[in-house]
């Protein structure tokens, strides 16, 4: 029986279970990031009273290392706010918040990238500001930033390896557990690294194809 079979193939149950947790956390975090990013961006751009607070949050999420944020949210927030009540929640929350800071800036670039003439054309045919935003600005912004959004998902997947540190039982956690059981890290860590690389590669390739498609069909360059 080869090492690969003993250490990796026969452990596929735990590894797949871990992979499932990874996918789950990443998808929740992605949803949080998009919602949070859009909210922060809209507040920053269109709601002056809270503009400064939004900027501080965006900059804080962007400039603090994900590992530090993760630990901070996992250990300090429950004491501070009584929430999150599990490490699982802390995991997706930290991943989602960090990415929401980046996405807020991405959305802003997308909105600002819409040519002024397009807006003026909308006003000139009698559209209201809200209608112009809905029908003219937003669709273009979403199109131009969609490759960056996909790219942000790859960041989430890569950072998600760190939630194993706060004992969320994701793929990385299961891999490290196996390493600690057998003390034979070569096969298991190589395969785990391979799984992550392939996963991220597939997502980022999808993002590139999306960007190509947008350029070909609408002549839009990614923001």
């Amino acid at each position: 029986m080869s090492n690969w079979e003993r250490l990796v193939w026969n452990q596929q149950g735990v590894l797949l279970q871990g992979l499932g947790v990874t996918v789950e956390v990443c998808l929740i975090a992605f949803a949080v990031a998009i919602t949070g990013g859009l909210t922060l961006c809209l507040i920053r751009t269109y709601f002056p009273p809270l503009r400064f607070a939004a900027i501080v949050l965006i900059e804080f999420f962007r400039a603090t290392p994900i590992f530090v944020q993760l630990v901070w949210i996992a250990y300090v927030w429950p004491e501070l706010f009584g929430w999150p009540n599990s490490f699982f929640t802390a995991g997706w929350l930290a991943l989602g918040l960090q990415s929401s800071g980046y996405l807020a800036e991405t959305f802003r670039a997308g909105i600002e990238g819409v040519a002024r003439g397009h807006r003026e054309a909308g006003y000139s045919v009698g559209m209201s500001p809200l209608l112009v935003f809905q029908r003219i600005v937003m669709p273009q912004a979403v199109l131009t930033v969609s490759p960056s959004i996909v790219n942000q998902f790859t960041v989430i997947v890569k950072s998600s390896t760190l939630i194993s540190v706060i004992t969320v039982q994701d793929l990385m956690f299961q891999a490290m557990k196996l390493v600690n059981v057998w003390y034979e890290p070569i096969e298991i860590l190589t395969v785990t690294a391979g799984i992550y690389i392939v996963m991220v590669f597939l997502v980022s390739t999808a993002g590139k194809m999306l960007a190509d498609l947008l350029r070909r069909r609408y002549g839009l360059a990614a923001a």
Binding site: T154, V157, K158, S159, S160, T161, L162, M172, M176, L189, T192, A193, Y196, I197, V198, V200, F201, S204
Partner: peptide, 9 residues
Amino acid sequence: NAPDYIMVV
């Protein structure tokens, strides 16, 4: 495409 944590490990 490699997560930095797993590469470090």
